[in-house]
Every structure is written in C-alpha cells, then in structure tokens.
Nucleic acid binder design. Structure first.
Lengths: 134, 134
DNA sequence: GCATACGCAACTAATAAAGTTACATTTAGC
DNA sequence: GCTAAATGTAACTTTATTAGTTGCGTATGC
C-alpha cells in the first residue's frame, strides 16, 4: 500500500462486506485480503465505526460488520468518515494581515469549499452496493 | 505552509497575477508574498509553465507572467498541471490475482476515476479571474 | 562585464502515514 | 473459572513525501 490507502482500504473492505452483509470478519482476515496488518485495519475501520457505518464486537467470535444495509452507505459517507479533506486549504496557511491579501485568501478558500461540497454531492450518489458485485 | 500547499500556492499566485496580468514577477517577490522561498516557488510554477499556463524569462528583468488571459485559465488547468490526483487509487496497490478480487478492484478504480472526472469538470467551470478581485 | 533573473541538482529537515510490538480488555465456549 | 480469540490502544520504528536550503550554471539587459 501507499498513498490514498485509507480511502482505498475502506472502499475495498466495505465493498467486500456488501457482498455478504451478515458475515462477521476479523481485522486479521481483512488485513490478509488487503495485504496489510490488523492494527492498520482497525485504525481505519475504527473511523468508519465512529461514523456509524460499521459495528465491531470484541472477544471470541467478534469482528466487524456493516451497521446498515449496503444500499444505505454511500461513498460520501466513507469519504467524510475518514475526515481527510482532499481540497480545503487548511487553517495552517498563515492568514495574511493585509486586507487585500485577506480578501483574496477568503475567495480562494470559498471556491475550494464549494468544490469540495460538489465532490461530496457527487459521492453521495453512489452506494457501496454499486461497487460490490451484488 | 503545510499540506495542500502546492495547490494553495499555485492558486494564490495565479489569482494575484490575474489582477495585473502584464506585471512580471520574480520568484523572490512571489516567495515573499507566500511566506516561502524562491526555489519552492520555481518548482511549483515550473509545473504550471510546463502545462502552458505561465511563461518565465531568465536574466535581468526576467520573471513570471500569465501565458494567456485570466479568463482562459481555469481551476481544472491548475489542478491537472500539478498532477496530484487526489482520488485515484494509484497503480501501487497490489493487483489481486483472484478473479473475483480483481473484478472488485476494477470496479472501485472505475468509480474513483469517474468521481475524479466529475471533480475536474466542476473545476473547469471557474476561471482564476473569478478568484481575483477583478 | 556585471548584476539579476531562472534552472537544476544535491542535500537536509520536518511531517505524515504505515507498519510493528506489546499489552489490557472483552467475550464465547468448555 | 479458565482459556482462546477478538478488539482497543499506546508507543515506537520505518518509510515516503515534501518543504526548505545551498550552490552553481546559464541567460539576459544595462
């Protein structure tokens, strides 16, 4: 794995799960499939659980499962759950003091925010069931 | 500066240039405004030049200038010039051997490619002149 | 010829992410 | 209860990317 790996891992895993929603999978199984390791899987899937897309159960016979039907989970849900905004200029760029600069800065930020919203809108049109074979 | 800095730097610089298209700017000037240094500026703007968005001239009184009018340069041009695909699963994820896996893999890739195309389409609707004050 | 610009290569430093190890906690089944 | 198997999480190491820096070659206008 390399870059964009969280989104990639999340999508592949969810698509798989969408094919057999009732099957419980352990992070070790998922890691094997994805060619990574269980802790990394738990880190990524943990975010999806926080967002209400997955549930996990501890202990013997525990593991991961979809929290709702594959038709009700869209790519936007996954994208937002990972909380990795691809576009927005973060709040780290030094905010300019000059007012002209500041106005320019705000216009750039505004446009990028709109673009991101449009991206999320587009993502929300595709449920993960459309990616799985079912 | 931190992340997304190339896109950020490019957009801010181009927006500035859009306000006074005839003015030639040195990488040192631009670096001062952006709070970075001239070499970094040349690296980023170099990509925009390769994409035909900017021209640069060496020597005394040299510097950077828009290659065409601000109305004719869109955010998609900038995004594509930087060649940083934000979405696509690169060709680095190990390609699965199992045919079922392979089919799933291809569907994920296809969907992400479509999403990226839609993003570029959206970006192409905004020229940099819309961000500058003019 | 000299000052001033870009072009580029090479190196360092900072950052983020994946990978790894270790251990606590929870749960099912005996 | 004991044990095996699973998640949860913290800490650390490794790796990859990027910004930053330095130095020097080359081009250009005065």
């Amino acid at each position: 794995m390399k870059r964009n790996s969280r989104l990639s891992l999340a999508l592949h895993t969810l698509s798989h799960m969408a094919e057999e929603p009732n099957r419980v999978r352990t992070s070790a199984d998922i890691a094997d499939h994805a060619g990574t390791n269980p802790v990394v899987v738990r880190r990524v899937l943990g975010r999806l659980r926080e967002a209400g897309l997955l549930t996990s159960e501890k202990g013997h016979a525990g593991g991961w499962r979809l929290a709702r039907s594959p038709q009700q989970i869209t790519l936007a849900d996954v994208y937002l759950a990972l909380n990795e905004r691809m576009i927005a200029t973060g709040p780290d760029y030094e905010v300019p003091s000059c007012s002209v600069e500041h106005a320019l800065f705000r216009r750039v930020t505004t446009v990028l925010t709109e673009v991101e919203a449009s991206l999320v809108q587009k993502l929300s049109e595709t449920p993960i069931s459309a990616i799985s074979g079912t």
